[in-house]
Design a protein around this nucleic acid. Structure first.
Length: 439
DNA sequence: ACAATGGTCC
DNA sequence: ACTCGGACCATTGTA
């Protein structure tokens, strides 16, 4: 049993007695079943959106070339850089450089958006090109005779997370102008609903417990708005006086903690000075001593043992952590900070999938919501609730309309109770005819 | 075939 | 001089 686990058990928490290896063994058949189940997409709606955006992108391309004064391949970063920085002579001072020249990444172009009218249509073109080429065109070609998409899940990551490929269903758009439109094309079968359940702030809750950070544990126990609380801490103000802008910055700080935040990294994310970012981080660690200690402990452990591990023992070796090339060593130090957190969260979700799948197969819902085990109404294969998707902190189940509420409660309860850490593992459930409405 | 660039998700 | 964790995939351009 590893040290983290020993420490947790002493505190009287309920941690399943199962190794990471055993979890993976048990989750595999669940994944194979989910792949086989697949999820239905509304191909007609997807293709309608494709048509609409294709027309739009053609017009944008013409507009961009007109503003540029010549024809060029808008999809080529190198040609784009020539147009922007040679033809139009836009300023490159603030922009990041790549190995081959000046970056034309969206985030960089934002910085010079007010210098020329051409930037706005370029950014819009990028957005549409991404959606069309990655989602709208390929997905309809991959459906089976029932309009269902079947991904392939794999366990081969360095943290213990799952991956999804061919197609990747873990990066379906949700933000942006058309994100919801695309998610809405992921639908439930007629007479069924999609039930989506996601862990709220799972990684922050995990790190709060791994680090035994008193302030953060208290915040989660009280059900506080964690980002608002962090804002109050780093800006030295009362929580009731936190503005939305301050909360946004604090949210970035909270996310950054789990990634091995550096002042430079935070400054890039928030578009602020390195000094300002450094002050936020210092203020944060002044309050969150537990996190500060955790970070140092993981780095020390990685240096001395050559690896770090999760709550249930998934291990990641960091062979270059003692490298004399500073960037390499620092990079692995950040991995040492992040991996136990991300990996523990992954283990929790896998445990929930295993247990939930058992319950769904046993038909727990029928007895749960109707209080009977009657088989008068034959439960046939197509109307049983089935696990369809897993997206790191979220599970998506397809369930008969009349059972959806009960299934939602079952999923929530299963996910929240599968492990007992030092803070509640809160789960939010949504039900809808499509994936957008179920969120 | 492969590297570089860019972008989507958690 | 230069950076925050983990993935997959599309396109361009070079070999």
């Amino acid at each position: 049993m590893n040290e983290i686990l020993e420490r947790a058990e002493k505190l009287g928490l309920k941690i399943p007695h199962i190794t990471a290896e055993e979890i993976d063994k048990q989750v595999k058949p669940v994944l194979r079943q989910m792949e086989k189940n697949g999820i239905k997409i509304d191909v007609a709606v997807l293709q309608k959106l494709d048509k609409k955006l294709s027309i739009k992108i053609t017009k944008l391309e013409e507009e961009i070339q007109k503003l540029a004064g010549r024809k060029f391949n808008v999809a080529s970063p190198s040609q784009m850089a020539d147009v922007l920085f040679k033809d139009l002579k836009l300023p490159t001072d603030d922009l990041k450089k790549t190995k081959t020249g000046i970056s034309t990444a969206a985030h960089e172009l934002q910085k010079i958006a007010d210098k020329h009218k051409i930037i706005a249509p370029i950014l819009e073109h990028r957005e549409l090109a991404k959606l069309i080429s990655t989602y709208l065109k390929p997905l309809p070609l991959l459906v089976d005779e029932n309009s269902r998409l079947h991904t392939t899940y794999s366990l081969e990551t360095s943290t213990g997370r799952l991956t999804s490929s061919e197609p990747n269903l873990q990066n379906i758009p949700i933000r942006g102008t058309y994100g919801e439109d695309i998610r809405a094309t992921f639908v439930a079968e007629k007479g069924m609903k999609l039930v989506s359940a996601d862990y709220s702030q799972i990684e922050l809750r995990v790190v709060a417990c791994l680090a035994q950070d008193k302030a953060m544990i208290q915040a989660f126990k009280n059900g506080e708005d964690i980002h608002a609380r962090t804002a109050a801490e780093i800006f030295h103000i009362e929580q009731s006086k936190v503005t939305s802008e301050q909360r946004r910055k604090a949210k970035a700080v909270n996310f950054g903690i789990v990634y091995g935040q550096t002042p430079y990294g935070l400054s890039q994310t928030l578009g602020i000075s390195v000094e300002e970012a450094g002050e936020y981080i210092r203020n944060y660690f002044d309050v969150h001593i537990g996190i500060k200690d955790y970070v140092n402990e993981m780095i020390d452990l990685a240096h001395s043992e050559g690896y770090v591990e999760t709550l249930l023992g998934t291990r990641r070796y960091l062979p270059n952590i003692n490298s004399h090339i500073r960037f390499i060593a620092e990079s692995e130090e950040r991995m040492a900070i992040n991996m136990p957190v991300q990996g523990t969260a992954a283990e929790i979700l896998k445990l929930a999938m295993i247990e939930l799948n058992h319950k769904l197969i046993r038909g727990s819902v029928n007895s749960l919501i109707r209080g009977d085990k009657s088989t008068s109404q034959q439960v046939n294969e197509s109307t049983k609730p089935r696990l369809l998707l897993t997206v790191h902190d979220e599970l998506v189940v397809e369930a008969p309309e009349k059972d959806a509420e009960g299934v939602g409660k079952l999923i929530k309860d299963t996910m929240e109770q599968v492990i007992k850490l030092c803070v509640p593992m809160t789960v939010e459930v949504g039900i809808g005819e499509n994936w957008a409405k179920a969120k």
